[in-house]
Amino acid sequence: MGFDRSLWLHVLVLLGVAAVAASAQAEPATERQRELVNMVRQDCGSCHGLTLKGGLGPALLPETLRDKPADALVATVMMGRPGTAMPGWAPFMNESEAAWIVQRLMQGFPPVAAQMELSK
C-alpha cells in the first residue's frame, strides 16, 4: 500500500516534470516573450519588486527558487496560492508560458528590453 502510493507519487512527479520540460521547449514567440518579460517585471513586480528582490511578496531570484520544484512554481503562477496575496495568472497566460517564465526566473530573469534601450 505504502509502496504503491510512493510509486504513484513518483510517476506523477515524473509526468509533471516531463510536462514542464515539454512545454518549456515550446518557447513563446519573440514578441510574446517581450510581453511576458514586461508583465513579470512590472506587474508581478508590483509585489515582488521590479528587480524581483521581493516586496510584499517574496523574492523571485534564482537562489531563492533553487530548491523549489518547477512544476509547483508553475502551478502557483497559474492558480495562485490560497491564503496569501498571490493571485492566479491563468487569465493572462497559458501553462507553457508560465513554465517558460518559471524557467527564466530560475536562470535569472531578463531585463525589460524597451527600458534598457531608453536608459542608454
Partner: peptide, 8 residues
Amino acid sequence: EKLPVYKM
C-alpha cells in the same frame, strides 16, 4: 469569492 488581486 476571494477575487484575485493583481495589484494592492
